[in-house]
Simulated assay, not measured.
Amino acid sequence: MPDTGGEATVGTRAAADPCDLVTVPARHGLEAVDILRLRTAVGPVLHDGGVDTLGFLVPPGTAERWDLPGSACTPTLHRGPSAPPVAGTHWLVPPQDAAPVTDPVLLAAALCEAARTIEAAERC
């Protein structure tokens, strides 16, 4: 295993690597987490119960090109080895149980599918 200067590692990236954060309403995000877990991989996910949102850690630079209605992408956060990078949040999917980050293309597709699933459930 490569030396990471004492930092915890997740996959091939150090847990302290910078990342961007895509936030969505919790219900929408929970559907997307399920979709990603079933089909591909999901990176670390934060839950902010105070505002009822989920945050998906994605590669740095994603915020520059993220344009998906109903979501927002915050530029570069710096993660600590185990502590959530955003105050008031906790890990829904902790780094040690996840891919290094969520692929933004796969996340966008999962969020679109999740929106369709929620819409269909509300019609019933």
Rank of each mutant, 00 (worst) to 15 (best):
E113C: 12
A108V: 01
P2T: 12
A8C: 02
G88W: 03
T74R: 12
P95Y: 03
V93Y: 05
E119S: 14
V42Y: 01
T12I: 06
A14F: 03
T12K: 02
V105Y: 13
A8V: 01
P84N: 06
A109R: 14
H47E: 04
D48R: 05
C112P: 03
A16Q: 00
G88Q: 12
T4G: 14
L21M: 14
R27C: 11
A83P: 06
G43E: 04
L106C: 12
P81H: 08
R37M: 11
V101F: 11
C124M: 02
T62H: 13
L77W: 15
P44T: 12
F56W: 03
G80F: 02
D67E: 14
T23W: 06
P104W: 12
E119Y: 10
L46R: 09
H47M: 00
A63W: 03
P75D: 13
A83E: 10
G80N: 10
A120E: 02
R27Q: 07
L111Y: 12
D34R: 11
T4C: 00
D17S: 15
T62C: 10
V93K: 00
P44Q: 10
A115E: 10
G61T: 15
L46Q: 09
L21F: 01
T74P: 00
E113N: 09
V86R: 06
G11I: 07
A41V: 00
L38W: 01
A87L: 05
V42Q: 02
A32D: 02
A108C: 10
W91M: 05
E64F: 03
V42P: 03
W91F: 13
M1R: 04
V10A: 09
E119I: 08
L54T: 05
S82H: 11
P18K: 01
D67R: 15
P2I: 10
V51E: 05
G29W: 06
L21Q: 08
H28Y: 09
P59S: 02
P25T: 12
T76P: 01
L111A: 08
P2Y: 14
R37S: 14
D52A: 09
G11M: 06
R116T: 13
P2N: 05
W66S: 00
T76V: 12
H28C: 02
A99H: 10
D48I: 00
T9M: 14
V105Q: 11
A98G: 04
V45F: 07
L92Y: 15
T62Y: 06
A63G: 09
R27Y: 01
G11V: 09
R123W: 10
R65K: 03
H47V: 09
E122N: 08
